[in-house]
Design a protein around this nucleic acid. Structure first.
Lengths: 351, 351
DNA sequence: CTTGGTTGGGAAAAGGTTTTCTCTTGTTGG
DNA sequence: CCAACAAGAGAAAACCTTTTCCCAACCAAG
């Protein structure tokens, strides 16, 4: 609102030399005046500052970077083009860095080794201060070798090289959250429907599921592995409610913990088609907290959120401290998940 | 693969000076040798090349940029953090630029003026060669003024400033594709269920819908405006099949053209609940071709694709030609949509 | 009047590359 | 044998900023 006279944006950026000339001083003095360095009369400093302001001077970041050997730039590699996983991560990274004046090169390498090398080389040529790798799966490498690059590297939600620093979601912890929540709500026969065995997280979550039920002395049904799709959710309901499941016989599940939100959606739809009420007859919890799915589901889906933005933020801040020369322990840091309770899981009876 | 002896990645990058020293020539000669400039014996050139290779020399992009006043870097502004719209656009841009050695700064400005200015300033300081603005809506401005920046600017899938160059989807054309496809399939009573009136595309598509039906001499039902949600799709089916719609009376729609894929999904689910078969009784076409929704729908959803990646590619290439000094007409370029036929729209009766 | 310290400011190098200009040497034609 | 010329390679300026070092002037004290 304060109507600052905006300097007219020049076709060619104004340099420190021009500022100095216009203020009648040397470039050295001008530089010092603007950076609060050196000794000079207050008037001189102020005059130079005003001149710079009037001319719309902004220091050339390239020249600064060349001198300081620090570009205030980081590279972000991903193979998750349309990713609902890496996007929140990116967003968190960006959040963490923008305040420090650091810009992010986003590079999608798909699963193409050539493209990966291309992008990494371009980053190094542009003297990025560091690199963050992210992806669509926690248990797969990007198609490019990031060890020994000469710049700090952090892995976020992707498979790290040995000896590196990585941030990933605590999938087992997330699964515990969901199953324990069901237990607290008094559900007794909790099933688990999840994705394909080729995903590491499938096993981590399934094991946590078994662990919690064992701890609580509740019956463990063997997790149903399938695909990450609604269709599989549908099909799994058929298996759960038509077949005989465990030795304990004919009792049907009163809760289903699903490996992702799409499966959960399929499960809920299939339950409705059978005339089973969600959450009254069967509680359902999903995973990923993919908002657009979770909120469109009837009833809205309770789901485990992996806190990916926070994960990205941590990765960004850690990279920055690495760039600043501070040491950091290598290793994998698991960040906790969080249960977002909506209506599909039910409430305590006496609520 | 040819086992090239990979140069050991040095902690500190090797400079041209070191290459020159190692090859026993001056930096000038070394530079010319590597760039194919100047005159020298083939042996000298080759020797320098080999030395550079051996040392793993890569020119410092910052120094080059400083000299050439060209950073091989562009800024990409968006306000679509989790966007399924701007992400394909970005992907297209990146595709178009990576081959030319241009890297992309991705900056999410949300809808925050301060953040926008912050990012734009950072870009200008880093001497980007150009800026591309994209967003989540074609009829809204980013929260930042990009006119008169001193660098070429292109708008892609967002509201341009007057006199700028912009690429947007041809929503009217896309709607025509859908409605005409229904006509070709012999559908006669085609309804339109779409989003809120506050979106310009809603009107553009609705008008195209009316135009096509009028041209074909088919009855025009007033488009139903609501929200972009599944729930609205559900509700709209109620209105379409319970109420009396147009003067022509009691005939129910045999096709529904939906404003996006989520609405279409809601429509299909609601039709199924009424015992109406898709596509046999009613054909359905969506918009956006959001793959994960379109393919999970039963039956898989026919949908209009806005070709956003192509749009991004065009934007990227145009920006590059602008940076190269070639002139370009200002104005809005509408890029055609494409109908992705799956199973929800039906086929010709005789196949 | 010297000496020593302080104050305000400038000159120059550094950062890494590209490019223009200049210089040396060898070759060819007269 | 000399002039003219081409080839091969180096010196230096330029890009823009930061920082170190240095200089001139001024002041007070001895």
């Amino acid at each position: 609102m304060a109507s600052n006279a905006q300097p007219v944006s020049a076709k060619t950026p104004v340099t420190l030399r021009e500022v100095a000339a216009s203020a009648g001083v040397s470039v050295a003095t001008a530089s010092k005046a603007l950076n609060g360095q050196g000794r000079m009369t207050a008037e001189t400093r102020e005059r130079i500052r005003e001149t710079a302001q009037r001319l719309g001077f902004r220091p050339n970041s390239l020249a600064q970077s060349l001198l300081r050997r620090r570009s205030f730039t980081v590279g972000l590699l991903t193979n998750d083009t349309y990713g609902r996983f890496s996007l929140p991560v990116m967003s968190g990274i960006s959040d963490a860095l923008v305040d420090k004046g650091v810009s992010v090169f986003l590079c999608n390498v798909e699963d193409d080794k050539r493209l990966g090398q291309l992008h990494v080389d371009a980053m190094l040529d542009k003297r990025v201060d560091g690199i963050i790798a992210t992806g669509k799966r926690i248990d797969r490498h990007l198609p490019v070798d990031l060890s020994n690059l000469g710049v700090p590297t952090i892995y976020a939600f992707t498979q790290p090289d040995p000896g590196a620093i990585a941030f990933v979601s605590d999938d087992a912890g997330g699964a515990r959250l969901a199953v324990e929540h069901f237990c607290r709500l008094g559900r007794r026969r909790i099933a688990h429907v999840t994705g394909p065995a080729s995903f590491a997280v499938v096993h981590a979550r399934a094991q946590a599921y078994r662990d919690v039920l064992t701890e609580k002395g509740l019956p463990v049904m063997e997790p149903l592995l399938g695909s990450w799709s609604e269709a599989w959710g549908h099909e799994a309901v058929k298996k759960l409610f038509d077949g005989k499941l465990s030795k304990s016989g004919d009792e049907k599940p009163d809760a289903v913990f699903c490996g992702n939100d799409q499966i959960a959606r399929g499960v809920i739809d299939a339950l409705r088609e059978r005339g089973l009420g969600v959450p009254d007859d069967v509680g359902v919890i999903g995973f990923d907290n993919w908002q657009i799915v979770a909120e469109a589901t009837r009833p809205p889906l309770t789901s485990v959120d992996m806190n990916l933005a926070a994960l990205g933020r941590e990765a960004g801040l850690t990279l920055l401290s690495l760039v600043g020369g501070e040491p950091a322990e290598p290793g994998i840091r698991k960040l906790p998940c969080r249960l977002v309770v909506r209506q599909s899981c039910g409430r305590l009876p006496d609520g």
